[in-house]
């Protein structure tokens, strides 16, 4: 019987080693250790042995059984791991295939520029003011020191709807309205919006375009404050090493009036095609609010002074992004629009 047991053990261990899958190994388990297996049979057959041999045989059977079990479990760990590895291997994907696209749109480039400017001035304590695009001649011109027949009205041929109503030619009427509404109190606003002029559309002209203007009114506002504010704007918008320069100019609603150039952000001032070899790029017009404008809105121009500035987001976008034709902003070609997706920070 002992020999029989040894024989069984050898057989079982051989089969364990030979088993190459979890299933085969499980079959071995059932075949040798199962309720109908030979080892169980042997245990059942012990009844026939003399009583004094039984404990010894019993112990022997258990030893064999344990050894087979241990071997089997050891083998099982290896085979299971192999099985998992094989499964994972079969699940391999082609990671070079493209990912599922996340569909995202983006703002119009002009919105992008306008909001950047809005946020910059908001951080300096400005509020955003808006007003109607169809405007009264009074707010568009007269309240801004441009009475009927003023020669500067030629500068901006307008779309009139009636004698007294027109499509605003600049966002300045929002300033006039805000001043009127504030009733003599200090103001710090920027006014973005669409404006309209009688221009034929071409690469550099558009009958509809956008403007963003700023207005600050308070006690002792000086021209140096205008220069400092514009300098902060230029650096934030176009880079820390930008310098600004003011040139005298003329606007009916400011006195003195200036135009602001920034040092070219492409060449740094040495001259290139962006700055037309001058090293400077004209960015905006500005000035100290004309006393007539203040007085007309009910401000005491002896007590309160102010500055105003205005710029064209189209021009800024064209300079910043290298856009060569203003009509791109109004054609809405998705191949153009979708380029303004990524951040520049």
């Amino acid at each position: 019987m002992e020999a029989q047991l040894q024989e069984l053990k050898t057989q079982a261990l051989d089969k364990i080693t030979a088993a190459s899958t979890v299933k085969e190994l499980n079959d071995v388990r059932v075949a040798y250790l199962g309720k109908k297996g030979p080892i169980t049979d042997l245990l059942k057959g012990m009844g026939k042995l003399p009583a004094e041999e039984r404990p010894k045989m019993g112990a022997l059977v258990n030893v064999v059984r344990e050894e087979v079990t241990t071997q089997l479990e050891g083998r099982m760990v290896i085979l299971e791991e192999e099985a998992i590895n094989q499964k994972l291997q079969s699940e391999t994907i082609d990671i070079t295939l493209p990912g599922r696209p996340v569909k995202t749109g983006n703002p119009h480039p002009l919105t992008r520029v306008v909001e950047e400017i809005e946020d910059l001035f908001i951080s300096m304590g400005y509020e955003v003011a808006e007003g109607p695009e169809v405007e009264k001649d009074y707010y568009n011109f007269e309240a801004l020191n441009l009475p009927k027949g003023h020669p500067a009205r030629d500068m901006q041929d307008s779309f009139y709807i009636t004698e007294d109503i027109l499509l605003r030619t600049h966002t300045s009427p929002v300033q006039a309205r805000t001043m009127e509404a504030k009733g003599g109190e200090p103001i710090k606003i920027i006014c973005p919006g669409k404006v309209y002029r009688r221009d034929s559309d071409d690469a550099t002209h558009s009958h509809q375009f956008t403007q963003i203007e700023g207005l600050v009114i308070g006690e002792d506002i000086r021209m140096s404050d205008l220069k400092g504010t514009l300098s902060v704007f230029a650096k934030k918008m176009f880079g820390d090493d930008r310098e600004i320069r003011l040139r005298p100019s003329f606007f009916p609603f400011t006195e003195p009036s200036v135009e602001m150039d920034i040092s070219c952000f492409k060449c740094g001032g040495s001259g290139c095609n962006v700055c037309k070899k001058t090293g400077w790029i004209e960015i905006l017009g500005a000035g100290m609010v004309h006393p007539n404008v203040l007085e007309m809105a009910g401000y005491d121009s002896k007590r309160l002074t102010g500055f105003a500035f205005g710029m064209g987001p189209e021009r800024i976008a064209m300079l910043k992004y290298g856009v060569e034709d203003i009509r791109h902003f109004y054609t809405n070609d998705v191949r153009f629009l979708s380029q303004f997706q990524r951040t520049e920070l």
């Binding site: 001035f121 509020e127 200090p186 710090k188 002792d220 140096s224 003195p256």
Partner: peptide, 28 residues
């Protein structure tokens, strides 16, 4: 003022910021 400033040179104007009380600003 403009005549004097332009002939004196706009480059000579210093850069300052308004000294008035700061206001919070923001969107409606």
């Amino acid at each position: 003022i403009e005549e004097i400033a332009r002939l004196y040179g706009y480059d000579e104007i210093p850069a300052t910021l308004p000294e008035a009380e700061t206001t919070p600003g923001g969107l409606t």
